[in-house]
């Protein structure tokens, strides 16, 4: 009888331990250098000694890959590429590596083109954007981007870019191939609440900055013309603050271009995220790194061990009207 009871005790205790440990089965490390596949819709950040924006850092071989399927943000647009995301963190920083197929390296961004007689301005660049809720957000956690702008409502009116709660905010990382990558950072922005559903304005605002950041390259006249230009490259798509010279019409021949923005890395919360993006062989590899806690009120605080829902979107030479979003809620977890 005593033996029976002991056996039962053991069985129940075992059940207890199994139940308590359930779901915590660690992912087996990958073999032969390929990173292991992760849980569905879950980005698992691995702990490393030190992070950097190096896309070839050795820890990427150990970091589980999240494959994100993207679909058109607007219902009538085709689906987008698969985005492969990995993450790692150290005591201070999180670093996220994203990779997706893109046939073109699109650096046009409100670029001025001179046809010999007049300027036309236009062009859309490639981008990848991350959205992180600031604070705990029940609706975003269960519905993802559908909880914000991309809800499934049949009513176009309901596609307002806000939330019905006054204290809901989102942190955004807006990496742009032309406007931010050239100066090694990602625009650190915020989605604020537009509590009025009739308000169709953009809820996207830049985080605070002390100096720097992209400046529109225009003289403000009618018709407008660039204010600055590159000193040496008459086909430039990128114009750095350090390379700018006052615009001189005589330098251009027909087909010449002048960048639409003068770029400088911002100082302040807007420049919290450092980035390195490289386009090669028909794909983008972008690595972004930020302090886990920037202490800036306009940023989401990332706490290792605390899972956080997030969303992601990419665009190929397209603006907001045709960006490709992850429909599922994605979750950042920590290992």
């Amino acid at each position: 009888m005593k033996r029976l009871l002991l056996a039962e005790t053991l069985a129940l205790s075992l059940a207890f331990v199994v139940a308590a440990c359930g779901g915590a089965t660690p992912t087996a490390p990958g073999q032969g250098g390929s990173a292991p596949a992760g849980k569905p819709n879950t980005l698992t950040a691995v702990k490393v000694d030190a992070t950097s924006v190096d896309a070839a850092a050795p820890y990427w071989a150990q970091s589980p890959k999240l494959e994100v399927t993207t679909s058109g943000a607007a219902p009538d647009k085709p689906a987008g590429p698969k985005v492969t995301i990995q993450a790692a963190y150290d005591g201070q920083y999180i670093v996220i590596r994203s990779e997706w197929a893109d046939a073109t390296n699109s650096l046009q961004d409100d670029t001025w083109t001179w046809d010999g007689k007049a300027f036309t301005q236009g062009g859309e660049q490639d981008f990848i954007a991350f959205i992180w809720p600031i604070g705990n957000n029940a609706t975003f956690a269960s519905k993802g981007c559908a909880a914000t702008c991309h809800n499934s409502s049949a009513k176009q009116d309901e596609w307002w870019m806000g939330s019905d709660s006054a204290d809901v905010n989102y942190d955004g990382w807006f990496w742009m191939a032309a406007r931010t990558n050239a100066v090694s950072y990602t625009d650190d922005i915020r989605w604020v609440n537009l509590t009025d559903p009739k308000d169709m304005g953009s809820p996207r605002v830049d985080d605070a900055k002390d100096s720097g950041g992209p400046e529109e390259n225009t003289d403000g006249a009618t018709p407008p013309a660039p204010k600055f230009m590159s000193a040496k490259d008459m086909q430039a798509l990128i114009l750095l603050e350090a390379d700018k010279v006052p615009f001189d019409q005589k330098m251009l021949v027909a087909g010449g271009t002048v960048p639409g923005f003068v770029l400088a890395k911002p100082v302040g919360s807007l420049g919290d995220v450092e980035a390195k993006g490289v386009w090669a062989d028909g794909k983008w590899v972008v690595v972004q790194r930020r302090l886990l806690n920037t202490t800036h009120p306009d940023d989401a605080v990332l706490i290792p061990s605390k899972p956080l829902p997030f969303g992601v979107a990419v665009a190929d030479a397209a603006g907001n009207l045709d960006h490709k979003i992850a429909k599922d809620v994605l979750t950042l977890e920590w290992k």
Partner: peptide, 18 residues
């Protein structure tokens, strides 16, 4: 629940109200 004109005529539509 929404404007009648915006509701799909055939499909079953999920509407979240608040």
């Amino acid at each position: 629940l929404g404007k009648v004109a915006d509701l799909p005529a055939a499909a079953v539509t999920q509407v979240n109200y608040s």
